[in-house]
Simulated assay, not measured.
Amino acid sequence: MTHPSWQPWQPGQGGGVPQRWQDGGAPQAWNGPATPAMLASHADRERAVDVLRAGYGEGRLEHAEFEKRVSRAYTARTVGELALLVADLPQGPMPQPAPVTPVPRTFLQVSRPQTNGKAVGSAVCGVLCLVSFGLTGIPAVVLGHAARSEIRRTGEGGDALALTGLVLGWLSNVAWAALLALMIVATALSA
Score class of each variant (00 low, 15 high):
L52Y: 05
V70K: 11
A188P: 03
A98T: 08
S149G: 12
P4C: 07
S132D: 15
L143Y: 05
H145M: 08
A186M: 08
S132W: 02
D88I: 01
G169V: 01
A147V: 04
E81V: 02
A181W: 05
L39I: 03
S41H: 02
P8T: 10
G24V: 07
F107D: 15
S172A: 09
K68R: 15
G55P: 05
G25A: 15
G24I: 04
S111Q: 15
R45C: 00
G14S: 10
Q13T: 12
T136E: 06
R153A: 12
M1E: 12
S132V: 06
R72Q: 09
E65R: 07
L85S: 01
Q114G: 04
L61F: 01
A34N: 08
C125P: 00
P93E: 15
G59L: 07
K118Q: 14
V100P: 00
I138Q: 14
V110H: 09
A140V: 03
A54V: 03
R69Q: 03
D44Q: 04
R112N: 12
G12F: 02
D44C: 05
Q28H: 08
S5F: 14
A87H: 12
P104L: 13
V51D: 00
Q114T: 14
A87T: 13
V49L: 02
A191I: 09
R20P: 06
A76I: 01
L39D: 04
L128V: 01
T115A: 05
E150G: 01
A29T: 03
S172N: 04
V167N: 06
D44W: 00
A177F: 04
P113E: 11
Q114E: 15
T101Y: 07
A29W: 00
N31H: 12
G155E: 06
G137N: 09
P93F: 07
M183V: 13
E67F: 01
G15P: 01
